[in-house]
Amino acid sequence: MTVLVSEPLVPLGAAFFPVEHPGETRKYAFLLVPGFTLLAFSSAVEPLRIANQLSQQPLYQWRLLSEDGQAVASSSGISVCTDGALSPLPRDTRLFVCSGNPAKAAAAPQVMAVVSRHARFGGTVGGICTGAVALAEAGLLTDTPFTLHWENQPAFGEAFPDLAPSPAMFEIAPRVMTCGGGAASTDMMIALIAADHGAEFAAMVSEMCLRKVMVGVDAAQRSALSVLIRSRNPGLIAIVARMQAHLEDPLPLTELARDSGYSRRHVERLFVSVLGETPGDFYRGLRLDHGRNLLSTTDMTLIEVAVACGFASVAHFSKSFRARFGLAPTKFHGPRRRS
């Protein structure tokens, strides 16, 4: 099927911001993968539409693609019509893979072929939400900064142990661009608009999105650990950070206490008073949450997940998992797996 190329959309609007030297229209293609995140996709497209509307010029042109040219169902069940099927794209087109859960859907053979070809012939490629999985499978993330949604980073690390995604909202390299999805898609596009047409114009686009000017630049995807645990105690924050860094090889409380400069008894009181549970229970919860993530986003076996979470046996992992989540890991709705 031939991709339909329509004229750039320049809607009317009340606000106006002139762009004196716009240059050629910049082209984007968004490849929608089944289960793509609608929020992340729309957050990427809308800044381009707003830029055209504000300037009343065709600064940007975009088209939507799918494997077969048909509508694609998003993760919310809402289907989006596309302009055509996958086919070779002009080199000046920025091609973004838009995906969600399951992340591996982004690595479908036909998607991989188009992404690889576009990069090989000098085109810029990108990933939105879990779109980085397609880029990783194509071998395009070596020696370049990249990111994907924090929820999918643990599974990504298991599938690609030699690649380390950043915690940033987005990463922009000369020919590879990625973002964590959601609001980060808007942040990335506003940064690209700033590079194309200046910071003042990009700031106005941000204002039209009802966002603070250039919010998200150099920011991490997740809130600070102090916010997540509702405490600014530096000792407690340091201990929890150490726990998060050692999920597969849990550290004994005596070592955690010694490294923080506190006594074991003081650490126990601190956890109970601030977090409402003992250090052991809190640590076990972190490991089990990690296991739940792996069960839902990978096809790892139960023994592999148990080991990755620091449990010596499947039996111990399963018992702890059931106690925390109310069901056995074998009943979890992730991919079918072996014990």
Results as ranks from 00 to 15, higher is better:
Ala257Asp: 08
Met189Glu: 01
Ala238Leu: 09
Ser206Phe: 07
Ala203Thr: 14
Pro250Cys: 03
Ala202Gln: 09
Ala191Met: 06
Ala173Ser: 14
Leu192Ser: 03
Ala184Val: 07
Asn233Val: 06
Gly181Lys: 10
Pro154Glu: 14
Pro165Ser: 08
Met214Glu: 01
Leu251Ile: 13
Ile229Asp: 09
Met169Gln: 11
Lys212Pro: 00
Ser231Lys: 12
Ile229Thr: 07
Ala184Arg: 03
Val205Gly: 04
Leu251Thr: 07
Val217Cys: 01
Ala164Met: 07
Ala159Asp: 01
Phe201Glu: 05
Met214Val: 02
Pro250Thr: 05
Thr178Leu: 01
Cys179Thr: 03
Gln221Lys: 09
Ala159His: 02
Phe156Glu: 03
Ile229Phe: 10
Pro234Asp: 05
Ile193His: 05
Ala164Thr: 09
Ser166Leu: 13
Cys179Ser: 11
Cys179Pro: 02
Thr186Ile: 09
Gly235Phe: 13
Met169Asn: 10
Phe201Trp: 08
Ala257His: 04
Pro174Met: 03
Met189Val: 15
Phe156Met: 02
Glu207Pro: 05
Ala194Pro: 03
Ile193Gln: 03
Cys179Asn: 12
Met208Lys: 05
Met243Leu: 11
Pro174Trp: 06
Leu210Asn: 01
Leu256Met: 04
Asn233Arg: 12
Ala203Arg: 14
His197Glu: 13
Cys179Ile: 02
Phe170Asn: 00
Leu253Thr: 10
Ala195Gly: 05
Ala220Trp: 02
Asn152Met: 10
Val217Tyr: 04
Glu255His: 11
Met214Gln: 01
Ala257Glu: 01
Leu228Thr: 15
Ser223Arg: 14
His246Glu: 12
Asn152Arg: 03
Leu253Pro: 00
Gln153Glu: 14
Gln153Arg: 15
Ile239Met: 11
Gly157Ala: 14
Ala194Gln: 14
Ala220Tyr: 02
Glu207Tyr: 09
Met188Ser: 06
Asp162Arg: 00
Ala245Ser: 10
Asn233Met: 04
Val217His: 08
Ser226Tyr: 09
Ala224Met: 13
Ala159Met: 04
Val213Asn: 11
Pro174Asp: 11
Ser206Pro: 13
Ala173Ile: 01
Lys212Phe: 04
Leu210Phe: 05
Asp196Pro: 15
Pro161Phe: 00
Ser185Gly: 15
Leu228Ser: 15
Ala257Phe: 05
Ile239His: 00
Ser206His: 08
Met177Ile: 12
Ser206Asn: 07
Asp187Phe: 10
Met214Cys: 08
